[in-house]
Amino acid sequence: MTQTTSATVVAPDMLPTRRSGSSLIMRKVKRSLPSLGIVAVVAAFWEVASHWFGVPAYILPSLEAIGSKIVTRWSDTLASATWVTGKEVMGGYVLAVVVALVIALLLHLSESLRNAVYPLLIGSQAVPIVVIAPVLAIMFGYTITPKLIVVAFICFFSMVVNSLDGLSAVDPQYLRLMRTLDGSRWSTLRRVQIPAALPSMFTGMRISAVYAPVGAVFGEYAGSQDGLGYVMIQATPLMATDMVFAAIVILTIGAVALFLLVNVLERIMCPWARQSRVA
């Protein structure tokens, strides 16, 4: 069963050498064993602290309290909150990808634009987003718009920087070669530089994937009527710490899922990148 699954994920002839014995999935499981082990140890300490050392539940709820909160409150609260926050995360993230690629291409093509805009981009990252988010909420109300902006604002920077690096890191010999092969600036960009920069773009996208849910929660803190961030705001004054942690668990799972999704996308779009790189 696992054998057939792995065969559909990666075509056998895409692998440089076939490793017999263990399937792809078994290797993945083996690789994630250490991190699962660390989670288990932390969970064990957590349980010991919450059950036997008398740490009150409003400070450190037990793991099964958090787990049962996710189950019991899923249908009435957490499901819709997850859906709302999920939309904000995905929407903001896609917005960031589009904006970042456009900015990176423009800055790559024009040196004077790069000199003018790049310092501003760096400066933009010093803007305290926690303070800006409420202003956006005033401007756009309790809609999804301010959340999308906050998520995109947090995510786009590492995408731009990595894409720009990838575009300019192409070995100049390739550019010379393209000149002798009747390659115009546009065809060189399209046939060499953009494909060569894809792995770097994906590196930026992977980094951002982890921050996207944090951005959504910032946005919701500034003003919202639903979402995981909203659930946390509601739960904190009630000292319903288990509910806060329930939301955190879901956010964490979401961030990891987005990260893995980007990985899968990269595998599909540049299967060659694990064998050879141009940039």
């Binding site: 070995d171 010999q173 010379r176 070669l177 060499v192 494909p195 060659w272 064998q275």
Partner: peptide
């Protein structure tokens, strides 16, 4: 060129 400079994709 000396290196083949083939595009891997």
């Amino acid at each position: 060129p000396q290196r083949d400079l083939l595009l891997p994709w």
